[in-house]
C-alpha cells in the first residue's frame, strides 16, 4: 500500500503533463482526413513567414546570449571577487523580471526610447531590434545570472584570479582564459534557457512590432486548425532539445582538482 501512493502520484503527474501533449501531437498529424500524416508540419515548414520569423528569432536569441554573457559573466565575477556584500542586492535585481511583467518593461522601453525621446531607438528597425535584445536579456537575467553564479561557486575565483595575476595576466585575459572556460558549462546552460525563452516570447516582440517567432505562432493559432498544433510540437521539440544540450554539455565541465581543504 505504501508503494502504491508514490506510483499513483507519478501516474497522475504524467497524465497531467503528457496527455495534452499526446493529444496535441495526435491532432497535428490528422490534417489529412482518415490517415496520420505530416502535412501540417510540411505546410508550416514550407511557410516563408515561418522561415523568416524563425530565423529572426534565432538571430535575436544568439545576439541576446552574446549580450547576456558579456553583461552577466563580468558582473557576477566582479561581485563574487570584489563586492560580495552586494550579492543579495544583485540577486534581488536579477529576480525582478520574474515579478515585473514583460508588458510593463516593454511599455517602459517605448516610453523612454520612442522617436521623440533623447535616444529614439524605436525610430529604426535596427534600433528596435537592439531594444528587443535588451528586453530579452532582461527576461533571461534570472536564469543566466543564477547559472553563471552557480558556476562561479564551483571554482576558487579569488585564488585563480590571483594566480593568473601573478603570472602577468590582466583582467581581460583572466576573464577570457581562466574564468570563462571554467564556467562555460554554466554559461551554456544559461544560454540554452535564454534561447528557449527568446524563441517563445510574444509580448515584447508583438508590442515592438518585430517579425519574431512568438507573434507568428499566435497569428497562426488564430487563423488555422492543424498548423498551430504542429508548430507547438516543433517549439516543444526545440525547447527540449535545448534541455538535452544542457545535460550533454554539463558532462564536459572542467573537473575541479583535488581540494586540499
Amino acid at each position: 500500500m505504501r508503494r502504491l501512493w508514490p506510483w499513483l502520484a507519478l501516474a497522475v503527474g504524467l497524465i497531467y503533463f503528457i496527455l495534452p501533449l499526446l493529444g496535441m501531437t495526435e491532432f497535428s498529424l490528422k490534417m489529412r482526413r482518415g490517415v496520420y500524416s505530416f502535412d501540417a508540419y510540411a505546410k508550416v515548414l514550407a511557410d516563408p513567414r515561418f522561415q523568416e520569423t524563425f530565423t529572426f528569432s534565432v538571430v535575436m536569441a544568439l545576439a541576446t546570449i552574446l549580450f547576456g554573457v558579456l553583461l552577466v559573466v563580468p558582473t557576477a565575477y566582479w561581485v563574487r571577487l570584489k563586492l560580495p556584500r552586494l550579492r543579495p542586492y544583485i540577486e534581488f535585481v536579477t529576480l525582478l523580471p520574474l515579478v515585473i511583467p514583460a508588458i510593463v518593461i516593454v511599455f517602459g522601453y517605448i516610453r523612454l526610447y520612442n522617436t521623440s525621446s533623447w535616444l529614439p531607438l524605436t525610430g529604426s528597425a535596427m534600433g528596435t531590434n537592439i531594444l528587443l535584445i535588451f528586453g530579452y536579456a532582461t527576461l533571461s537575467l534570472p536564469y543566466m545570472y543564477r547559472a553563471v553564479d552557480t558556476g562561479l561557486r564551483t571554482i576558487d575565483v579569488a585564488t585563480l584570479t590571483e594566480a593568473a595575476q601573478s603570472l602577468g595576466a590582466g583582467w581581460v585575459t583572466i576573464l577570457a582564459r581562466v574564468i570563462l572556460p571554467n564556467v562555460l558549462v554554466a554559461v551554456l546552460s544559461g544560454a540554452f534557457v535564454t534561447f528557449a525563452i527568446v524563441l517563445g516570447e510574444f509580448t515584447m516582440a508583438a508590442l515592438l512590432n518585430r517579425p519574431a517567432f512568438g507573434p507568428y505562432m499566435q497569428l497562426l493559432g488564430a487563423n488555422r486548425a492543424y498548423e498551430p498544433a504542429a508548430l507547438a510540437v516543433i517549439a516543444f521539440a526545440i525547447t527540449w532539445g535545448c534541455m538535452a544540450l544542457i545535460q550533454i554539455v554539463s558532462r564536459f565541465a572542467p573537473k575541479a582538482p583535488v581540494n586540499p581543504h
Binding site: 571554482i155 576558487d156 585564488t159 585563480l160 590571483e162 594566480a163 593568473a164 595575476q165 601573478s166 603570472l167 602577468g168 595576466a169 590582466g170 581562466v178 572556460p181 571554467n182 562555460l184 572542467p254 573537473k255 575541479a256 582538482p257 581540494n259 586540499p260 581543504h261
Partner: peptide
C-alpha cells in the same frame, strides 16, 4: 605596481592550478 606588473611568481596553499 599591480601584481601582473611585478614579475613575481607565486605558489598558493590551494595550488590554484587552472582546472581547464
Amino acid at each position: 605596481l599591480r601584481p601582473n606588473q611585478r614579475n613575481i611568481g607565486m605558489v598558493f596553499q590551494s595550488y590554484a592550478l587552472f582546472p581547464n
